[in-house]
Design a protein around this nucleic acid. Structure first.
Lengths: 336, 336
DNA sequence: CTGAAAGCGCTTACAG
DNA sequence: CTGAAAGCGCTTACAG
């Protein structure tokens, strides 16, 4: 039953015990049809009896398929990525795949290490949320070496599978909503300067301001670390201006949570005093007090789609590049 | 530079290009000292030139070390596990290991699948938060097959490496605090019925009630799903009783968040009307409104310790079993 | 200081 | 229906 430490039960051991060749055992395990019912049963029984464990790494050396993928994200502690990961895991489990996890904290150096790690371990593919500043060539090279799907952030001009939210549409809707509520001075807080997601979200805001001929005040467009603390600090700075905003559109929910706390620290109540809108709609958003108005990016679904896309790409390397933009819906709650 | 799809650059290719044997290349890559400086440099240059990628799975077939571990937790979407995972990742990164991630949602069936998955992929070890109801023999067998460390939940009588919080001490302190504040009717909400963590936390509460000769009311000790929603539903049930509690000690922070929301749904303000205390001190806890009093279980540190322990066990299989109980401190905030 | 050879545990044509 | 053999890409004694 139990293995002797150091000695692994192999196909050969099973074959010896049954009195057939290891080819036969291998064929049984891969459900090959032309093994007699009797042999098959004896093999299966012996597999159980000896506690044989299939060595997928040995198999993958021959078949070149590891049933393992690499998942490279920014930070598992950000609920957006946790929900994303959960969706990915869900899809992988059903297909017998599993993910190697790497959090880069948006550091290019970590990202490079994870690329190497995943390739050395022969991942069948990679789901990647690229760190801001990733050179496009890096991704192009990677995607030639390994099936790759980008998630949540893309790189301009890089033709690779991608799944993300409709960022611009999302902030357009959010901005229209704020303007309808009478806001004219709308701040934008947070996001990694060079990420596609930030640029698209900011563009949505700017375009709607233009449409309504509301002058753009650059001093209200600030960046900050994508953490609660980042939002907390940044908003206090912004509110100190001579003509502070009456509404703030945040890069994402995590920043919005920080902004709400920062407003309170300035003795302002998020909602009544200053409107706050987030992006993502992580589970937490509806539970805050006040509940957070936000643009839904459906992270769990996004993860499922990314995993689906990757598995399709693995099966069919020549299929056309697919870029999925998931619809964004505005969810109005108490904070705006 | 780039590989031809399907063809992997191997040691042999590098050897051929340099004009040495693959043994020599291998020795260079493992930094073996007795290769001449000149050969070494030529090999290294060629490795770069050809874009050689080390095949760790082939290597591990010989060396029996994959530099990969399995991480099996309940739910990555629960911030406690996300912070745990972040701590684990941090330690692994420094030692060139990486984790295969599996979320069981506390289903034994998923857990079994992950055990198989991790073994098939030759993980060097496993960090496991066992699903409630896991038979002790399962863990014993697993730990004989593979270095194993349990995290956050242990199994009575199973002598395996373990890292967890001092659960009983934590809830003792929390209960003393509530009693000091004048509470007599204290509910306990949530937790997987058969988990060691729940039992220990509940025991802490009960022992302090006894110490103060406060009668125990079983109807106030309820269980629920370990989600915000679980706490939300459970507390509303509890508050409907004839003699409802004035304070509630929650299995963990996630349940406590749900409880706070549930109280509001009953028109009760957490803090002033009903005291609420959580367990874990996830990052979110200090940010809620009201901020959540809780017992700190330092999830990030817990993760780091678990990874350290596993790596030590891998290096030194015969070292004595180590069970680390991390000190619990009570953090009093606005909710109590 | 360097190379030839065996072997890790599988799969997969190819024979029979 | 089943087996012998080659090979996936490494490492590691063993010679020289």
């Amino acid at each position: 039953m139990d293995q002797i430490p150091g000695h692994r039960v192999t196909l050969q051991d099973v074959a010896d015990a049954v009195g057939v060749s290891k080819s036969t055992v291998s064929l049984v395990l891969s459900n090959h049809p032309r093994i007699s019912q009797e042999t098959r049963q004896r093999v299966l029984d012996t597999v159980d009896e000896l506690g044989y464990v299939y060595d997928r790494r040995a198999a993958s050396l021959r078949t070149r398929q590891s049933f393992t993928i690499g998942l490279i994200i920014t930070d598992i502690t950000n609920p957006f990525y946790a929900e994303l990961t959960s969706g990915i895991e869900h899809t992988l489990l059903a297909k017998n795949y599993i993910a190697l996890l790497g959090s880069t904290t948006d550091l290019l150096q970590n990202q490079e290490r994870f690329f190497a790690t995943m390739r050395e371990r022969s991942a069948d593919g990679i789901i990647l949320c690229p760190a801001p500043g990733t050179p496009p060539e890096t991704i192009l090279r990677l995607s030639r070496q390994l099936p790759t799907v980008l998630i949540a952030r893309y790189l301009a001009g890089v033709d690779v599978d991608y799944v993300g939210a409709d960022n611009e549409l999302g902030t357009r809707r959010a901005t229209e909503h704020l303007i309808e509520r009478g806001h004219r001075r709308i701040a934008f807080v947070g996001g990694p300067q060079d990420s596609s997601a930030r640029q698209d979200r900011l563009r949505g805001l700017v375009s709607i301001l233009e449409k309504h001929r509301i002058p753009l005040d650059e001093s209200l467009m600030v960046t900050c670390a994508v953490t609660r603390n980042g939002g907390y600090t940044a908003i206090q700075q912004v509110m100190r201006a001579d003509d502070p905003p009456t509404a703030v559109l945040c890069y994402n929910d995590v920043v919005a949570f920080g902004v709400m706390l920062g407003l309170r620290a300035c003795d302002l109540e998020p909602g009544p005093d200053v409107a706050v809108v987030g992006f993502d709609d992580v589970n937490e958003a509806s539970l805050w007090n006040p509940s957070l108005s936000t643009v839904s990016a459906t992270p769990t679904e996004m993860g499922q789609h990314a995993a689906d896309l990757l598995l399709k790409r693995i099966e069919q390397p020549d299929r056309p590049i697919q870029q999925m933009i998931l619809p964004s819906t505005l969810i109005i709650r108490a904070s705006s």
